[in-house]
């Protein structure tokens, strides 16, 4: 599988990109006339897959899409897709007949036979929630023109889990909050987010802790409000305050504690430039500090785009892809250190 590390969603020129890494809108939909995926037979899974393939490749989105049968894909390819946030962990690991459809520029992905028949998402760099919402809405219209969705007058779009009921829409942003982490303010952000019915997760979603100071925030409520209201609330409730809080904390660090700040940043850079072995999480944490240094003009010779690319390229499947061979855990750490050294020279 050939995937470009400078995919459209992974570029650095975007609104608020000093704090907001990327944003996403996701819609959960089920096709009328079938049980949800947790109650389907193998034959129904097969039928759903065929139906979705015909429908998606025949829709007006067709010439942009690449179809991948995941039950036939190698573990390596599945892992690559997961590392790029194009499929969920669940979809990577599941055994049943399932697929993912991806647009050429990787901003759109549609998982077929995940928890719901269709999980469609649009990704964009930086804070561009309006844009991803309009795109996913357009995708939804195009799919709806081809098939009937399971829809209920009171509950709206029906989903396997009642937490996704109604609009089936989830907005999320991937934030990088190194200053709030450094000053131990991050727990306050977590609490504030929870109070507002927002979920806070790590880089790879549920369960993954905050390696690289990545925090993914998403709305929990999907029923009882229009998509526009949900979007407006999500954008206005807490995001501007978190962004402001992180930027303010960075400024305070520069003004009041610049020696400590520079020590952390340049120590991280020194390790990345000289280490001969690096773990994923360690590398992500160090890269996050260097990125902070670049954002604050404390490091001038490195381009932020390089750091963003590295976050992806140091992931296990991407490393193996880069070297074109399978690697043992030790070789992996070595390869990771090597690519980081090369790119930061």
């Amino acid at each position: 599988m050939d995937l470009d590390p400078t995919a459209a969603w992974n570029i650095e020129q975007a609104p608020h990109s000093d704090v907001v890494i990327s944003c996403r809108a996701r819609i959960a939909r089920n096709i009328d006339g079938f049980p949800f995926v947790n109650r389907t037979t193998d034959a129904q899974n097969h039928e759903l897959l065929n139906l979705s393939r015909r429908m998606l490749l025949g829709s007006e989105l067709a010439d942009e899409l690449v179809w991948v049968d995941l039950h036939e894909a190698t573990a390596h390819d599945r892992r690559l897709l997961f590392e790029r946030h194009l499929i969920s962990k669940n979809h990577m690991e599941s055994k049943s007949e399932r697929a993912v459809v991806i647009s050429q520029d990787e901003t759109l992905s549609i998982m077929v036979n995940e928890e719901d028949h269709l999980r469609m998402q649009v990704l964009a760099p930086g804070l561009q929630l309006e844009k991803v919402y309009h795109q996913i809405n357009h995708v939804d219209d195009a799919v709806e023109a081809e098939i009937d969705y399971a829809f209920h007058d009171r509950w709206g779009y029906l989903t396997a889990c009642p937490t996704n009921l109604g609009t089936g829409i989830r907005f999320s942003v991937m934030l990088q909050l190194p200053a709030l982490r450094m000053t131990n303010e991050i727990d306050r952000v977590r609490r504030a987010a929870n109070d507002l019915h927002l979920a806070v997760r790590g880089y790879h979603g549920e369960g993954s802790e905050s390696a690289g100071n990545f925090y993914q925030i998403s709305n929990q409520v999907t029923l009882g409000k229009t998509e526009e209201e949900l979007l407006a609330e999500f954008q206005e409730a807490i995001l501007p305050r978190i962004i402001e809080y992180e930027l303010h904390t960075r400024k305070v660090l520069v003004e009041k504690n610049s020696v400590l700040l520079d020590d952390r940043i340049h120590r991280a850079l020194a390790v990345l430039r000289s280490a001969r072995m690096l773990g994923t999480e360690e590398a992500m944490n160090l890269l996050s500090r260097v990125r902070l240094g670049i954002c604050l003009d404390r490091v001038e010779e490195i381009n932020r785009q390089i750091i963003k690319q590295l976050f992806l390229q140091i992931q296990p499947a991407h490393l193996q892809q880069h070297l074109g061979q399978e690697l043992s855990p030790v070789e992996m750490r070595e390869a990771r250190a090597t690519i980081v050294r090369q790119m930061l020279q």
Binding site: E144, D148, T167, E227
Partner: peptide
């Protein structure tokens, strides 16, 4: 259960499939 999960939401208020 649904009402509490959705912070008081009891009815779908969003998009409706055109075919409905």
């Amino acid at each position: 259960l649904i009402e509490r999960t959705h912070n008081g939401g009891t009815h779908h208020a969003g998009k409706i499939p055109q075919r409905a």
